[in-house]
């Protein structure tokens, strides 16, 4: 019975996670085209320009030159960010010392979990079990160290505490507990095989025995996964948009009919802003082509 409840919980959590992430990504992806708001350095500029943060606009008659975009530059920049948290390292080393183990712990646990599912059949092979155990131990330990360190910093450092809500603390506390539980589960061979069997059973529907410790770990993990998309911890998905669709979105307009259509539909929106100088009710295109009304402050 308990196993069934747990399985249902894990299944629901994954379902909520997928729906939540999809909703969050669509929230950003389906917004209209926005005005350009580049921020340099831009990673896909060729290396010679990327080094000093330059752009194609440094060239005379820039439109007459072929646009050279370095995919490798983008991949490298994102890899440095995801793996080493480079911006935090450069600008906030004290936080980085805690944030790096926190993120690596999450990465390791996520990878270990994913690998467990297809490999669960081969767990009798001892080196593999050992490897998964080590990954679980390492991931859980790093997460525990990172989350506890961040929680401590956010409580004790006045500048961080000011901007940390009680719910933020709960989140970090929960992740620290999850890290501790993951370490405890991974410390025994039966814990790893039990977790793998449970995860495999999600696909096969077969019954899997679950210890109390594993049950608690899975329950807490499920809770984390379920509410993750509804918190700012989803920034791993948002980061794609902030970098690729805002900061690095420097492509000059061409004879691109799709862009022209998107812009036209934006210019056809009706403006509802109500200050005196805005012609409320007109389209953006009409407002832009008009002159302002007499100025005035609406404060009476």
């Amino acid at each position: 019975m308990a196993e069934t409840v747990l399985m249902t919980w894990v299944g629901c959590s994954l379902g909520i996670f997928i729906v939540g992430c999809t909703w969050r990504i669509l929230r950003y992806a389906l917004t209209p085209v926005h005005l350009r708001w580049d921020l340099y350095p831009v990673a896909h500029e060729p290396a010679a320009r990327r080094e000093h943060g330059g752009s194609y606009m440094e060239e005379l008659n820039w439109w007459a030159h072929p646009q050279r975009r370095s995919l490798a530059g983008e991949v490298l920049a994102m890899a440095e960010e995801i793996i080493f948290l480079k911006a935090v390292l450069r600008n906030n080393r004290r936080l980085w010392l805690r944030s790096l183990p926190f993120h690596w712990g999450l990465y390791l646990l996520a990878v270990t979990t994913l690998v467990m599912i297809p490999l669960s059949a081969g767990l009798a092979w001892r080196p593999l079990t050992f490897l998964l155990q080590a990954a679980g131990l390492g991931g859980g330990g790093l997460l525990l160290i990172g989350a506890a360190g961040l929680l401590f910093l956010r409580i004790t450092d006045r500048e961080l505490a000011l901007y940390t809500s009680p719910l933020d603390r709960v989140n970090l506390g929960l992740l620290a507990i999850f890290g501790a539980l993951s370490t405890a589960v991974a410390s025994s061979q039966s814990g790893v095989t039990g977790a793998a069997s449970l995860l495999a059973s999600l696909a096969t529907g077969r019954h899997a025995a679950v210890t109390l410790l594993l049950g608690i770990q899975i329950a807490v993990g499920g809770l984390f996964i379920a509410y993750l998309p509804f918190t700012k911890m989803i920034h791993f998905a948002a980061k794609y948009f902030t970098y690729h669709k805002v900061r690095w979105d420097d492509a000059p307009r061409t004879e691109d009919t799709r862009m022209a259509r998107r812009l036209q539909s934006a210019l056809d929106y009706r403006v509802e802003w109500s200050a005196d100088h805005v012609q409320t009710g007109s389209t953006w295109g009409q407002v832009a082509a008009s002159m302002p009304d007499a100025p005035g402050k609406d404060t009476d």
Binding site: V88, L95, E159, K232, H235
Partner: peptide, 11 residues
Amino acid sequence: LSMDNCVKCQT
């Protein structure tokens, strides 16, 4: 994006 995702790390 900026309203939803700030983790307030103060970097």
